[in-house]
């Protein structure tokens, strides 16, 4: 589904990612772990197409397309979804309106018929209920006045509505208490299927107790230092990242 070959990325002229090789097959969940400043969020942003994240070398191939040639909205239409570490507030725009615009914008780009308000609201209520969220959240302006947990749940709701092929969760566990963490991971697990893949970016192992990955990668100093199974996450939890940051120096 996604193949990164020698990917190098600079931000403001500083090279952050220094040659990433990674293959994610359909149906797999990969965890990318690493210390602060290792380039985890940079990887998420460059995949989603944020401006200012310049690809200086290597390639990103997603379902046969070179991602560098696509705008962020085209990548979204192709099925890439980024759950933000810090979801953004859009004052005055109701959550339901935003979700409907997003869904129909994607459908339009794919050449599919748009959903009318009735059809959309039906779908929205169903998904909201499945995630154990209140419909009151749909009327409020996007992320405005939301608690940290609500913002993250809102990201998962968007994911459930937009049904991406590849979900990238950027530190979705940060700022969540244990109950919210469970709700969010249950949501992600429900969306797991043989047709979709996910990249879980996290600093801590605890999220991986709830969302069990197929592969775990350690990202430090802009390169993948080690790859293993889920047991690698537990090892990191015990030993920390020190060995990777020092060895690479």
């Amino acid at each position: 589904m996604l193949e990164l070959k020698g990917l190098r990325v600079s931000v403001d002229g500083n090279e952050i990612l220094k040659g990433i090789d990674l293959v994610i097959n359909t149906g797999e969940v990969h965890a990318i772990m690493g210390p602060n400043g290792s380039g985890k969020s940079t990887l998420a942003y460059v995949l989603a197409g944020r401006s200012g994240y310049e690809v200086t070398g290597g390639r990103m191939i997603f379902q046969g397309d070179d991602l560098s040639e696509l705008t962020p909205e085209q990548r979204a239409a192709n099925g890439i979804f980024l759950a933000f570490q810090y979801p953004v507030e859009i004052p005055g725009v109701a959550n339901a309106t935003f979700l409907k615009e997003a869904m129909n914008a994607i459908r339009r780009q794919r050449g599919e018929d748009e959903l009318d308000t009735m059809e959309f609201m039906k779908l929205l209520r169903l998904k909201t209920g499945n995630l154990g969220m209140s419909s009151e959240m749909l009327k409020r302006a996007v992320n405005v006045g939301f608690s940290g947990g609500e913002k993250k749940r809102n990201e998962i709701l968007q994911m459930a509505i937009l049904k991406p092929r590849l979900s990238i969760l950027d530190e979705t566990d940060s700022g969540l208490d244990i109950d919210a963490l469970k709700i969010v991971s249950d949501g992600v697990n429900k969306l797991r299927s043989p047709d979709t893949s996910a990249v879980i970016i996290t600093h801590y192992q605890r999220l991986l107790n709830h969302i069990v990955p197929d592969h775990v990668h350690v990202l430090a100093k802009g390169v993948i230092q080690k790859t293993g199974g889920k047991e690698l996450a537990q090892e990191l939890e015990k030993k920390g990242y020190a060995q990777y940051t020092e060895e690479a120096a």
């Binding site: 705008t71 909205e73 979204a76 980024l82 979801p87 507030e89 859009i90 935003f98 914008a105 968007q158």
Partner: peptide, 11 residues
């Protein structure tokens, strides 16, 4: 804000 909306598919 722009990036957030565009990431959700909105041109």
């Amino acid at each position: 804000q722009l990036f957030y909306l565009r990431q959700r598919g909105i041109p």
